[in-house]
Design a protein around this nucleic acid. Structure first.
Lengths: 149, 149
DNA sequence: CTTGACTCCGTACTATGGTACGGAGTGGAT
DNA sequence: ATCCACTCCGTACCATAGTACGGAGTCAAG
């Protein structure tokens, strides 16, 4: 069987759709295993590296940070790791996403309310949007003196 | 009428609920107007500064970046600016938020599908989550075998 | 053998939104 | 008068996710 030709940084970068510098960056971050080198120092990536880099990018698009992706990848090194471990991480991420969606919905309705209240013609000084954003927060707790009272 | 006592950085920071350093940072960023100083060099903030800083924080929570907040605040200096200008910015922000929500929903269903497919007991090597994230880009609906470039 | 593209490296820089540090000067309560 | 929290300043640093730079070395085609 033929050993698949090794890839150089430029080739891997192109196939995976990233920048060459990004590969070095991922390597420094421990996301991409350090590949063997030619005597010249050139990196020689195995063909699977393409999948790995793609994996990283996909996971990023799903909202995983590089740190989390590393966690996901490190799971491969755990002998008894199962698919369920991965599913667990994904499930946690779903919860994160749900929370973000909820937050954004709250933000959206706050914004919509402001826009709705806006009597477009009013001069800025009376703009209820500006005004309502500047009001006091809900509670005004005790203020323990630091120096003066 | 009494001139309201001027605030020092620490007081403003406490009332507005931010860090003293953050005030300096906002000042450097042009978000907070440069306040008058005592002869000692101490900043003397007018009481309104509290509202201003609160405004900044609120707007941040609504998803405005400091740059956008600056834009919002600069509007005050435009003589003919109206509430409608502010509403316009808010409306744009609503659209941004809607787009983010849509993206997150797509991400969520992609994640949910992965988790659903997962036969929890499978060893990692056959994990369909890992597998599917590593596959080639988009359904290359073009069946031509990818030739070396 | 020359040329031009590619790769190497360390370092610095981008943007975002702050925090932290350290030494010097200030102010007000005791 | 002393004490010490408070404030000043410039600068450096944090995390995140890269991008850019520049000089040196390498590879392969012509």
């Amino acid at each position: 069987m033929t050993v698949t030709a090794a890839l150089r940084t430029g080739e891997l970068a192109e196939r995976a759709g990233v920048n060459v510098e990004t590969l070095r960056f991922y390597e420094r971050q421990g996301l991409l295993p350090v590949p063997p080198r030619r005597t010249s120092g050139y990196r020689e990536y195995p063909a699977e590296a393409v999948d790995l880099v793609r994996f990283i990018r996909r996971a990023q698009h799903l909202g995983f940070s590089l740190r989390e992706i590393k966690e996901l990848l490190n799971l491969r090194a755990v002998p008894r790791a199962t698919c369920a471990d991965v599913a667990g991480l994904a499930q946690r991420k779903i919860e994160d996403v749900d929370a973000k969606i909820r937050d954004l919905r709250a933000v959206r309705s706050a914004l919509a309310e402001l826009v709705n209240e806006c009597p477009r013609a009013a001069p800025l000084a009376q703009c209820p949007i500006i005004e309502s954003l500047s009001r006091e927060p809900i509670p005004k707790r005790d203020h323990r003196p630091k120096r003066k009272s």
